[in-house]
Write a protein that binds this DNA or RNA. Structure first.
Lengths: 244, 244
DNA sequence: GGCGACGCTAGAACCGCGTTCCAGAAAGTG
DNA sequence: CACTTTCTGGAACGCGGTTCTAGCGTCGCC
């Protein structure tokens, strides 16, 4: 082989401009955002990085790990974002009503998954990501402060954690059309029209089909969350003296 | 067709024993149960059916459609199972308290996805499956009977529907080890041990790690569902005269 | 009862993908 | 200056989804 490339490629060796795991994951996140999970391939990533497969596989074990790292980064960024913990006044989570803080945290997770729709399924598929554990811990801590008695902590933390993650993931998972993002309004319109034809077999569906035209995923996520939290508050109110 | 096979293969032509869409989907469900989504390939399916790829692709457009049909069948079976609607006494859904019926329905969905863990992610990925629509319709109908006012029906039906589907899917999605089903108890043991080492960064996690040793996914699904439904009951109690 | 059309099949082949191999280039080490 | 270590990238392997197509049986029709 002649001298690999006279001039316009990354030079190998352990230089300061060497590829790092972080750079690879960053590029993966960007590509996943552009193409969705289906369109994302290692070959495309390699091309974008102007390198070869060996370079990527030096830093990560395989594609699964790569996507997991990318998803972990998305969730981690949601957890570290100020919106997930601070009040408008600039105070930390520590001074907020726990339930309010829980709501904020959940919204931050939802918004992060909404921006990176490919990450949702990934996070729910294997909730062993470091940042998923961190989220669980945050949820649990807030429940403790909300006064959940010790024997209910694990169960209720799991319930809230799972609800937030699973529902966010499902609601933000778009129909990954390979590249062209369909017009949302037109899509809802078509769906509603289709549903109205099912009056025979699915009366309720046909009945509410019209509501679909102005429905907002994010708002519904909040309704569900509030329902769950109000159920939780009810349980706490029933046995206030059980607290630890 | 006594000879059924000239040499030792299915004969072509449009005989009564020709492959049908149903047969293909049946075989797909069976294979998916055995191998999980990752291990399932069209080639394996073709081999099991003792035929060629052309036969399969004559009946379904592509692998995605095939898996979607399989998932749809799983969900549909849950909806038609007696457990999803009948009381022990043999009466139908019609005579049951709506909330109780809702619970039953949710459990049927959970159990179906629990038996076919590969189906969960599939159903949540594209909730446009016919049986998903049917589920939504059932949920909505029960909410109407529970007294949900008209202007809240669509929103609340979506919330309950999404919760049931998304949480079931997440909790039943196993770590699809390609063939060997790991011992659950040992897995929980290892997880708990690992969590206990995180006391520094994740105090709550370390605190409840022990609880993980005897935790039951199904039970926690029910806790979450009941929390949501009790929140819903609370909303209804607040404005009883709004009913339609 | 021959005959063409159609439904359905299955082998071969195409192509893109994840992944591995390995020869080798720069930077670090003595 | 050898010599090691870290990192690279072109080539190649094997597998998986999918398409192509020659052909088999059966049915409708004259």
């Amino acid at each position: 082989m002649p001298p690999a490339r006279a001039g316009n490629r990354h030079r190998p060796g352990r230089g300061s401009d060497a590829l790092s795991r972080d750079v690879v994951v960053d590029a993966a996140v960007a590509l996943l955002d552009e193409l969705g999970e289906r369109g994302f391939t290692v070959r495309l990533l390699v091309e974008r990085l102007e390198t070869g497969p060996g370079a990527v596989y030096w830093h990560v074990a395989n594609k699964d790990e790569l996507v997991a790292l990318a998803a972990d980064r998305v969730l981690a960024s949601a957890l570290s974002s100020p919106a997930s913990s601070a009040t408008e006044g600039g105070q930390g989570e520590g001074d907020m009503a726990p339930v309010k803080a829980l709501r904020r945290l959940a919204v931050a997770v939802y918004d992060a998954l909404d921006v990176h729709p490919w990450a949702g399924p990934q996070v729910t598929a294997s909730p062993v990501l470091p940042s998923a554990l961190a989220l669980f811990d945050r949820v649990g801590g807030l429940l403790v402060r909300a006064g959940v008695p010790a024997h209910r902590r694990f169960t209720l933390a799991t319930v809230v954690f799972t609800h937030v993650l699973a529902v966010s993931a499902q609601m933000t998972a778009r129909a990954e059309a390979g590249g062209e993002r369909v017009d949302r309004q037109a899509f809802l319109e078509r769906s509603a029209a289709r549903l109205e034809q099912l009056a025979g077999s699915h009366p309720f569906l046909a009945d509410v089909a019209g509501d679909m035209r102005h429905h907002d995923d994010r708002e519904q996520f909040l309704v569900g969350l509030d329902l769950l939290l109000s159920g939780l508050a009810a349980e706490l109110a029933e046995s206030p003296e059980l607290i630890e």
